[in-house]
Amino acid sequence: MKLSREVIATEDKRKLQDISGEEVLSCYQCGKCSAGCAMTEAMDLLPHQVIRLLQLGQVEEALHSRTIWVCASCLACSARCPRGMNLPNVMESLRAQVLRPGDRSLNPADIPYELLEIIPEQALVAAFRKYT
């Protein structure tokens, strides 16, 4: 990884900050978020690693991570973060960066019919808010 002023402070990073309202530099990488996250098993990056990538200006890599789609916005991390980082907001800003140009990460047609039959409406509304 080559670092320079241009790499660290990109336009994308500024946009993420505007969407999330969070300053990623306030994270001191203690990992408490990752330690308590219920979803890490399906994540390729631990939550604190996503923040680290953003600190380093590696926005692209963060955007391509599975982690941002697996985060369930459960707020277990932010409730315990010693630095008051709203990490779920940062995850949402990354999702927004992908989705806002019109992409989607969940296709209604891909949801198995049997699941659709029984899953509560609430889940569908929430998922389409987060994934499309």
């Binding site: 203690c30 990992g31 408490k32 978020c33 990752s34 330690a35 308590g36 604190h48 315990r80 010693p82």
Partner: peptide, 19 residues
């Protein structure tokens, strides 16, 4: 190197979730 998120008791063990 990391903070611990939770500690709880389970069957006489002190369970630590860390990183």
């Amino acid at each position: 190197r990391g903070r611990v998120s939770r500690v709880f008791e389970e069957n006489g063990k002190t369970v630590v979730f860390g990183v």
